[in-house]
Design a protein around this nucleic acid. Sequence first.
DNA 1: CACACGTGGGT
DNA 2: TACCCAAGTGT
Length: 342
Amino acid sequence: MPDPDIAAVADFAPRLLAWYDRAARNLPWRIAPGSAVTPDPYRIWLAEVMLQQTTVAAVAGYFARFTERWPSVADLAAADDADVMAAWAGLGYYARARNLLACARTVVADHGGVFPDSEAGLRALPGVGDYTAAAVAAIAFGRPAVVVDANIERAIARHRLIATPLPAAKRAIRAALAPLVPRDRPGDFAQALMDLGATICTPRSPACTRCPVAADCAAFAAGTAESLPLKPPKKAKPQRHGRAWWIESDARLWLVRRPDNGMLGGMRALPGGAWDEPPASDDGAVSVRHGFTHFDLTLTLVRRGVEDAAGEGEWWPISALDAAGLPTLYRKLVDKMRESDR
DNA sequence: CACACGTGGGT
DNA sequence: TACCCAAGTGT
């Protein structure tokens, strides 16, 4: 592949930023382009962690509740683990919430409550990987970091027609992106590229006719934009089965806390067995199907007596179960049970 | 490098 | 219905 035209490289950021100045999405954690407001690293970091593998629409409500309840990193660091986990319930990938707390406490304990302002300093924090360190460095601190998320991967793979399958293509994508990052407005540049990927350079049916950088997009010229980037084939999801126990006493339900490692780690849950049972045949039993990333689970509810409420746990008023912060799997099961009881 | 790790919305 | 996908990180 020949090197792209020097003039095209020099022109990329100005074109993209001019489009962003006009078309930027208005998001709760975002400082509008041109605003004189200084970004709050805490809010940028919080939003970036919430947005990992999670849609803007899903994050908005959580971001509002977290920043209302814990306005600063010191407030979050001082929070109870159970409160933070419950507030995260439903957002998924719960290791993020455990790392979020660990990160907030590290910032307070080791950095005087001030986020590191360098990519390397950020990268050393719990739950902050290559993407988040670069994004916070660029957006909160104006560092010319090379920010690469799935949107940017897709846009650059198309623009430069990088036909290597992911994840091997990441090296070439990063190399192609690095010289495009402007010293001026690197944070807006990263967000502009993400907006482009989210609204124009979409996975399916990209709107190339509205793209501000289509003029020198190699995949557009070749007519192959929609096919890029190439992805590895996905594998079949196993079907798994398990049982959860409904242990009720005096209008309260026995809840436990799942171990920090593994599925739904650290979250409140109904007690039960491992998810490795043969398919249940209890006719008429309350059960739910729930699709996880790498397996599908059918979870069946079984009534048990109070003698099974052993070990660590809490009696939770059934009328207040919504406040328990159950992950979606258990919330679906509980909702179905309460419905069938009526 | 490959895999574990959630969930909800779009098609 | 089924599959795809989303501002990834840790191991």
